Simulated assay, not measured.
Amino acid sequence: MYFLIWGFLVWLGATLIFRFFGHFFFHPENALLLLLSYLLVVPVIALLTYPLYKLKDLTKEERLKAAMFIALPGMFIDTVVLVIFPDVFTNLPVQSDRYFGSWLLWAYSLILITGLPLKKREGGDK
Results as ranks from 00 to 15, higher is better:
L4E: 04
L4W: 08
I5K: 14
I5N: 03
I5R: 13
W6V: 05
W6G: 04
W6R: 10
W6A: 06
G7A: 01
F8C: 14
F8N: 10
F8K: 13
F8I: 12
F8E: 14
L9V: 04
L9Y: 08
L9S: 11
L9W: 03
L9M: 14
L9A: 10
L9T: 09
V10M: 15
V10L: 14
W11G: 04
W11R: 02
W11I: 10
W11K: 05
L12F: 15
L12D: 08
L12H: 11
G13R: 13
G13Q: 10
G13F: 05
A14G: 12
A14W: 15
T15V: 04
T15A: 13
T15F: 05
T15G: 04
L16I: 06
L16M: 13
L16K: 08
L16N: 07
I17C: 03
F18N: 04
F18T: 02
F18H: 05
R19G: 04
R19V: 04
R19C: 02
F20G: 03
F20P: 05
F20N: 05
F21K: 12
G22S: 08
G22H: 06
G22C: 08
H23P: 00
F24N: 05
F24Y: 12
F24K: 01
F25V: 01
F25Q: 06
F25K: 01
F26H: 02
F26V: 06
H27S: 06
H27C: 07
H27M: 10
H27P: 02
E29T: 15
E29Y: 14
N30L: 09
N30T: 02
N30V: 08
A31C: 09
A31T: 15
L32V: 10
L32W: 13
L33A: 09
L33V: 05
L33E: 08
L34M: 09
L34A: 06
L35N: 05
S37C: 08
S37M: 07
S37T: 14
Y38H: 13
L39H: 07
L39T: 03
L39D: 11
L39V: 07
L40M: 11
L40V: 07
V41Q: 06
V41S: 07
V41F: 03
V42C: 10
V42D: 10
P43R: 13
P43D: 08
P43G: 14
V44R: 12
V44A: 14
I45C: 00
I45M: 05
I45T: 00
I45E: 00
I45S: 01
I45R: 03
A46K: 04
L47C: 15
L47K: 10
L48A: 10
L48M: 11
L48V: 02
L48H: 04
L48Q: 06
L48D: 01
T49L: 02
Y50Q: 13
Y50A: 06
P51Y: 07
P51W: 06
L52W: 06
Y53D: 03
Y53I: 00
Y53C: 00
Y53L: 00
K54Q: 14
L55W: 10
L55P: 00
L55N: 06
K56P: 07
K56G: 07
K56D: 10
K56A: 15
D57F: 14
L58F: 03
L58M: 05
T59I: 15
T59F: 09
T59M: 15
T59P: 14
K60D: 09
